[in-house]
Simulated assay, not measured.
Amino acid sequence: MKQILFFLIASFLTTVSQLFAESPPAVEGHKAFMEGLQEIQADALEFKGAKSASKSRTLSPVVSRFKGWFIDVTEKAKSSKLDEVDVVEGISLASKSRASSAWQFVETEKGYVVRSAGGKYKGWIIVIDDSAKTRPEGPNLTVTPALRLAKSATANSYWKPTLTKQGLVLEAMSGKYKGWVWDFGGGDPSHEESGRQVAVNVLLAEKVVAGSYFAVKAAE
């Protein structure tokens, strides 16, 4: 009886894990969107392994009080090391767009790199710190504050972008949090930095939720 119960529990957990890891369904315009990111060819890029890259884009949530805010990095970012690479912790949402709100999608054989296109950390890329701990976000979701901005590529630097009806979803392609997606803490507080509100609340979530969808626009 115990063996049967163990088998059923293991099967259930495997099914749930696979469900969480599934990519969201792409909208009909996904292919055209991806082709639209190939604006700069490899010979014009200073990024090892790059096949192409986009021009600068902004990414903004499409729901909650943070709707229309911009993926950015706080002025209070904390410095550390990850895989012997300089990183900062503090990827945020900002109420107003600045140079640091611009990002570039770089196509590689391993997936896409999301690279800062302006500001203090221009050229740095968004990576995952596998040592970050998880926490519950409400009763039905687990998240982790694992995103870092790194000076160069680390073990887990690559993303799978999927354009859906609701917006763009960015899914981790490797590491402990493979299959997890960008999200943000919808109830987290914000503070003022240089004339705008900033919330240090960008996360990875175990499955696609409302906060996983982002609007992508050309940076002004």
Rank of each mutant, 00 (worst) to 15 (best):
E39M: 15
I40F: 11
I40W: 11
I40P: 10
Q41C: 11
Q41G: 07
Q41Y: 03
A42K: 14
A42Y: 08
A44M: 08
L45Q: 03
L45R: 02
L45C: 09
L45V: 06
L45S: 07
E46P: 01
E46I: 02
E46D: 14
E46Y: 04
E46G: 13
E46S: 13
E46W: 03
F47V: 13
F47G: 01
K48T: 11
K48A: 14
K48G: 01
G49I: 10
G49V: 09
G49K: 11
G49L: 13
G49H: 09
A50M: 02
K51S: 11
S52H: 10
A53M: 06
S54T: 06
S54Q: 04
K55D: 09
K55F: 08
K55R: 12
K55P: 01
K55N: 09
S56I: 08
S56H: 05
S56R: 13
S56T: 08
S56L: 15
R57A: 01
T58N: 09
T58E: 09
T58S: 14
T58L: 04
L59G: 05
S60D: 03
S60Q: 15
S60A: 12
P61I: 06
P61C: 11
P61G: 07
P61S: 09
V62E: 07
V62A: 02
V62Q: 07
V62L: 06
V63A: 10
S64H: 15
R65Q: 14
K67P: 02
G68D: 03
G68A: 06
G68H: 04
W69M: 02
W69T: 04
W69D: 00
F70N: 07
F70Q: 05
F70G: 03
I71K: 01
I71N: 01
I71S: 00
D72A: 12
D72T: 13
D72I: 07
D72M: 10
V73P: 04
V73Q: 12
T74K: 13
T74D: 04
E75D: 14
E75I: 04
A77S: 15
A77D: 05
K78S: 15
S79C: 05
S79E: 15
S80T: 11
S80N: 10
K81L: 15
K81W: 08
L82C: 12
L82F: 04
L82G: 07
D83E: 14
E84V: 01
V85T: 15
V85L: 10
D86V: 00
V87W: 09
V87K: 08
V88K: 10
V88L: 12
V88M: 10
V88C: 13
I91L: 15
I91E: 02
I91Q: 03
S92D: 02
S92G: 05
L93E: 07
L93H: 02
A94Y: 10
A94E: 11
A94H: 07
A94G: 12
A94M: 08
A94T: 09
S95N: 04
S95I: 11
S95P: 06
K96A: 09
K96V: 04
K96M: 08
K96P: 00
S97L: 03
S97Y: 04
R98D: 06
R98P: 00
A99W: 03
A99P: 07
A99E: 11
A99Y: 00
S100P: 01
S101K: 00
S101I: 00
S101A: 10
S101W: 00
W103Q: 01
W103E: 02
